[in-house]
Design a binder for these strands. Structure first.
Lengths: 105, 105
DNA sequence: AATAATGTACGGTGTTCGTCGTACATCGTA
DNA sequence: TACGATGTACGACGAACACCGTACATTATT
């Protein structure tokens, strides 16, 4: 059950309230804040020493199933990136408006 | 216990994740959508025949305690309005970016 | 094949949420 | 004062969430 299959919703299926819920948690907000550099980060890279692994898996699943992030297996790691293209296409300006204040949240 | 005291957080105490959580529910998103006309609406006015009163009270409390709305007793009603000034001051552009798509939720 | 590294799956616990019915308080009016 | 209208408070219920430990799967390396 390692890095194999990951469910990702289609771009057209993204809903506003699901995305807002995914971003309504301080931990997940911090994760997305780290992903704003448009680079791929491994799961352990994100808040590594702050949160237990199983907890991080939980949060990453919520972000992924809301369509906010994309998870890609790479070797024995998982690389996570923002779905800026899809989120921006469906909700223009939303991500920027939220993440402009991601740290003070 | 009628229209008497209502807790409203100070403008400086608004947090991003609380606001996002308040807006992460379809019903509350619809309420805020109706409030976007910058007018005051009574509680019964909002989604009147869609949601039971006690349910509406619950949702309005969450919006109010997150600092998204302001509730003011007026006679035997409660008039609810958006706290655009405070929310915009603390998180510029956030409300507009979210509510631009409030209906396609 | 054995090992270590990475991350998931599963299960458990305690908390919070969404929903609603019922009872009650407040206000305006007759 | 009695009544109807408006909205809250409280309690209850099921569902979902946050958190984490443990066990397991996958990968790369030795």
């Amino acid at each position: 059950m390692g890095p194999r299959k990951f469910f990702h919703p289609d771009a057209a299926e993204l809903t506003l309230h699901r995305i807002l819920f995914a971003l309504s948690d301080p931990t997940r907000l911090a994760v997305v804040s780290e992903l704003m550099d448009s680079a791929e980060h491994s799961s352990g890279d994100l808040l590594a020493e702050t949160v237990p692994r199983s907890t991080m898996t939980h949060h990453l699943k919520i972000l992924r199933e809301a369509g906010v992030t994309r998870t890609r297996p790479e070797g024995m790691r998982c690389l996570i990136s923002l779905r800026r293209d899809d989120v921006d296409a469906r909700f223009p300006g939303l991500l920027d408006a939220i993440m402009a204040h991601g740290r003070s949240g």
